[in-house]
Design a protein around this nucleic acid. Structure first.
Length: 482
RNA sequence: GGCCCUAUGGUCAAGCGGUUAAGACAUCGCCCUUUCACGGCGGUAACACGGGUUCGAUUCCCGUUAGGGUCACCA
């Protein structure tokens, strides 16, 4: 059996879309599961849409996610160059296009934009054009004359208008379309660059790609590719079209969503491991139904035959849950390092950040959640005194006030302000008075935090705030309640 | 509109002719508890519809419906 070779072929036009990321992931997994090679190819044939820095984004993303390529612009294993503009400069595409012309499978087209516009029809507000093979019938002499005159041209694929074309997709099976539907698509643009459609086929063949992994949106253009392979007499690779990823409205993920790109998700406080894990499960499921996978585990378990055919909604809620799982199982030291910048964002005081980090660890789903969890350490927020009223604790503003007054002197005299002693002491106090623990803890926690929910109990908060600050806050609370 | 694809709970999804139709997220309830969370236990919730094929269809076939994709000198 020949070695599996898959490729990720993004065009450097901007951010890393999560759909693209998943395609890259699947291509990587398919190769690695079989011990094959994963190749990176840059498809920069559209000079207009090309964006500065986009290539770096591609490298960074692959690096960060661990989708390490075996070959690429930076690692030439004899199939280079791996950048299409460089291949274009070598004349590769034109050479192959001319081969097709010789075979009658392609032809020069000199049609002007105006003429093409005349071919447009409008349906449902969308402009559709089907080329009418106008230039197919130009004589050799006419073509040469136009070429000599320097008239701009494109090269078009010459597709049949009758019969059908069938191609095979590993997931979707045989797909047959009437040839009438096949437009004479452009292979070489008037600027001399190949179109994606053409460059893709030529390069996949030249780079000996065995499995073409790409998004479902290419399914309908696949027959044209097939004809190209056949026209060249090349072996058709295995096609694997991945189901689409959609937003919650079941529409193709768009830039508008805010969570459509890898970078956005990182910015939102998600971990790359969680993103990769989550995205892997969008359209694929292991036989044992496991959910948490590291990349090596995915390599081991991934089998593209289990891929789903229907589109999947990108569910932020579940991503958040999964991110929380990753955070909880994270090494404490590593978590501390990652959490620290977020903690410092809201706390300028000199508090025990390590303790705060560990308190918050089981309570967040993304790092961004940290802020609102701990901001009260810096300063007690404005709060309604009704917060002292709690049915289950049997507290209200009145008994909270008397309780705080009772506890204040005890705390003032208290020497050790660590959590354990505080808790023991307050529990004893409660016992003596015949109070339930919660009855004393609730007002204290409220007084000290001004929050309905905090990342720890009353005594934990107090031990972190320290004696002085705690007393100050309780006094302020007494004042507020009086 | 043509062509193509898809169709199991709100979401991701097991299932691949005979099952009490898994599991996860979300949701709800209970327990744990110094609040919240974590954790534990449990509940609600699905085979789009109509025809076939078959002893028997969620599963196979055909329609209908619904959704999506695509129809560029973009990829």
């Amino acid at each position: 059996m020949t070695k599996v070779r898959t490729r990720f072929a993004p065009s450097p036009t901007g951010k890393m879309h999560v759909g693209n990321l998943r395609t890259a992931l699947y291509a990587y997994l398919i190769a690695k599961h079989e011990g094959g090679d994963f190749i990176l190819r840059i498809e920069d044939t559209d000079q207009e849409r090309e964006m500065e820095g986009a290539v770096d984004i591609i490298y960074n993303t692959l690096q960060k996610t661990g989708l390490i390529h075996d070959e690429g612009p930076d690692i030439d294993k004899g199939f280079g160059p791996y950048v299409q503009s460089e291949r274009q400069a070598q004349g590769i595409y034109l050479e192959y296009a001319k081969k097709l012309i010789e075979k009658g499978e392609a032809y020069y087209c000199f049609c002007t934009e105006e003429r093409l516009n005349g071919l447009e029809t409008e349906i449902d507000g969308k402009k559709l054009t089907k080329y009418d093979k106008h230039c197919l019938h130009l004589s050799k002499e006419e073509i040469q004359a136009k070429l000599d005159a320097g008239i701009p041209y494109v090269i078009r694929q010459n597709n049949p208008t009758e019969g059908t074309t069938t191609f095979v997709d590993e997931l979707y099976g045989d797909i047959t379309v009437p040839n009438e539907e096949l437009d004479d698509m452009i292979l070489i643009k008037s600027d001399g660059f190949p179109t994606y459609n053409f460059a893709n086929v030529v390069d996949d063949h030249l780079m000996e790609i065995t499995h073409v992994v790409r998004g479902n949106e290419y399914l309908s253009s696949a027959p044209k590719y097939n004809r190209l392979y056949e026209a060249f007499g090349w072996e058709v690779p295995t096609y694997i079209h991945c189901p689409l990823i959609t937003d919650e409205n079941h529409k193709k993920l768009s830039k508008r969503c805010g969570h459509s790109s890898f970078e956005d998700l990182l910015k939102e406080g998600y971990l790359t491991e969680a993103i990769v894990n989550f995205v892997a499960l969008l359209g694929w499921c292991p036989s044992d139904n496991r959910e948490i996978f590291s990349l090596p585990e995915l390599v081991e378990a991934f089998d593209y035959h289990n891929m789903s055919k229907s589109p999947a909604v990108f569910d932020m809620v579940k991503l958040s849950w999964m991110n929380g799982e990753y955070i909880k199982s994270m090494d404490d030291e590593k978590f501390y390092e990652m959490a620290l910048p977020y903690i410092k964002e809201v706390i300028t005081k000199d508090l025990d950040f390590r303790k705060i980090a560990s308190m918050v660890k089981t309570r967040i789903e993304t790092f961004k959640d940290i802020r609102e969890q701990i901001d009260f350490f810096e300063e007690v927020p404005e709060y309604d005194i009704e917060m002292y009223t709690h049915k289950k604790m049997k507290t209200n503003t009145e008994n909270s006030l008397t309780l705080l007054k009772e506890v204040l002197p005890i705390l003032t005299e208290c020497e050790s302000f660590d959590n354990d002693s505080l808790f023991e002491m307050l529990q004893n106090f409660a016992k003596e008075k015949g109070y339930k623990t919660g009855f004393v803890m609730w007002p204290l926690r409220t007084a000290v935090s001004g929050k309905q929910a905090t990342p720890g109990g009353a005594t934990e908060l107090m031990s972190i705030l320290g004696k002085d600050e705690t007393i100050k806050r309780i006094e302020a609370a007494i004042e507020k309640l009086s």
